[in-house]
Write a protein that binds this DNA or RNA. Sequence first.
DNA 1: GAGTGGTCTAGACCACTGT
DNA 2: CAGTGGTCTAGACCACTCT
Lengths: 244, 244
Amino acid sequence: MTPPPTPPAFRPLFAQIKELIVDRIRAGEWQPGEPLPSETEFAEFYQASQGTVRKAITEMADENLVVRFRGKGTFVASHTRERALSHFFKLFRDDGGKDLPSSRPFSCRRQKATRAMEERLGLERGAGVVVIERVRLLDERPLIFEIVVVPEALFPDVCASLQDSLPNEFYPYYETKYGVRVIRAIEQLRSVAADEREAEILEIAVGTPVLEIDRVAVTYDDKPVEWRRSRCNTRDHHYLSVLN
Amino acid sequence: MTPPPTPPAFRPLFAQIKELIVDRIRAGEWQPGEPLPSETEFAEFYQASQGTVRKAITEMADENLVVRFRGKGTFVASHTRERALSHFFKLFRDDGGKDLPSSRPFSCRRQKATRAMEERLGLERGAGVVVIERVRLLDERPLIFEIVVVPEALFPDVCASLQDSLPNEFYPYYETKYGVRVIRAIEQLRSVAADEREAEILEIAVGTPVLEIDRVAVTYDDKPVEWRRSRCNTRDHHYLSVLN
DNA sequence: GAGTGGTCTAGACCACTGT
DNA sequence: CAGTGGTCTAGACCACTCT
């Protein structure tokens, strides 16, 4: 007759409402950029007070799932170029200057996932993936060499599509063309030596220290949707991280 | 008769109250670890509702300035070893294992600030600084070589004090011994080649790529209190960064 | 002017901590 | 038990946007 190990698990009403709304966003009830129902509408719908709904939506806004505009409404977050650059691009010039990145595609091919890819992307054995290589330039100089790996199941025919559009930022592209929404990314940083190929591409000497950024991008349920390994020349740039 | 460029600047009541309370914490009215007055006490004091005070304190908690415990009260945040490691130490083992860092002091000396130090620490020309060098070990192996620079004015006789205590984490030490509270740190990461000295200390070959972490730690008014340059061997470790 | 999010209030009840 | 923070409500007013 011992009490249950995990007590009845009281969940605040606002947390439940938040989960319900997030589920509906995930299900695609409102597309990125579209307005959500107003707080009062939600309040009536879920039979709660406006303040409770407000708290639910506030948490969603804190997690960048939605964006609020006073007088206008609340909108499903979208991967604009602005957001991609401010939230998901942490490389800055040492002198504080601002430069716009461009990108040069290298290759795009379909293959079977390696063990490492399966593990990082949470795929089953033998699943297909698409591997994209590209160079990102800042100020017309090659700065980053990237290998991007995505599950083929999520992004069918992405190679063919890339021929047409050649987007600079991938996440807005994933969103509009495939309905895949990246909401968070986990990065592991290391210092490694540039190999021959990277050296040539980045126009540096073989063995030059480069910053490796190993990123897994995930969507709503922390489900991985992209694995990306970047090698960055940090001679005149740095990666910015703020700790609280 | 044009309207003022910056409109009257309406500040919400909760923001004003927050600022007032933060000012009082900064002034030392309550020490780290000590309880603040309750929300209802603050509400009465500032002639506001409990909900408004609550919102002010919630923001302070979000910024890790205070810690709340249900049923107990709200306390000024303190640099426990836990917090130092979880919030200000981002290096982890690749295999996910956990290892406790220890540290070996190297040198501690007083000198005049270089131009770089003046700039990073916001010091006047010719100000005195204390430069501390140390090695941090994980699993008994040297992993990080650090140069720590602090203004002498803030930390008088720190070299002598360090002889006695030799703390592993500096921020709790700054807090208890000097009343200096680090609340945020800004880090710039680069990949560089280990020089002779670093190579010897870290037991690696000269020229091995190491991760440079260039950190400025600040206190309440974003005032710099420490500049730290770490060189990390990332052969079996990585720096973790989460993007939203 | 109607509708949106943002602030503020006053009061209620709950969960938890101390005594 | 009283006191704390945590949740929830109902209602008011403000700042802003759009029509």
